[in-house]
Amino acid sequence: MKPVNILLADDSQADADLIHEALLENRFFANFYHVADGEQAMAFLRRESPYTDAVTPDILLLDLNMPRKSGHEVLAEIKTDPDLCWLPVVILTTSTANSDLIDTYTHHANAFLTKPMDFNEFMGLIRSLGDFWLAAVKLPPHD
């Protein structure tokens, strides 16, 4: 069994660390990669410089509010790119806005999660996320 490659696009390092921590805590068999904005995310996915050696992630955790390129744009780009549209995208954001919710699903986001304020809740969420997406769900193959 191969480890799942998780790509997180989030402008908050703190949140990135927290998520990494949570994943490690739950001993998920996964590789964790982090980019800080939307451009980097696209570069990573397209294996463009400086991410020419990047692996192909099995799942993308996408924050919405990112500088340079927002999560919405990334989503849109991915889901309209035939080479990338297969990628499961889970939105992970602080936003509670209805519009974000509707928008992302409309642009074919696979799931929408709001980052809980409570630490415990947060940890529980990541666990659920892992349980579902990494254990239960069959991820599409790719090369």
């Binding site: 908050s12 602080t94 809980p116 304020m117 409570d118 630490f119 947060f122 940890m123």
Partner: peptide, 20 residues
């Protein structure tokens, strides 16, 4: 309040992590 929530969350989260 929304923006305030973000760092607060981190604070609470890392505090929790620390505790944890």
């Amino acid at each position: 309040s929304h923006d305030l929530q973000e760092p607060l969350r981190i604070i609470n989260s890392y505090l929790g992590l620390l505790q944890h």
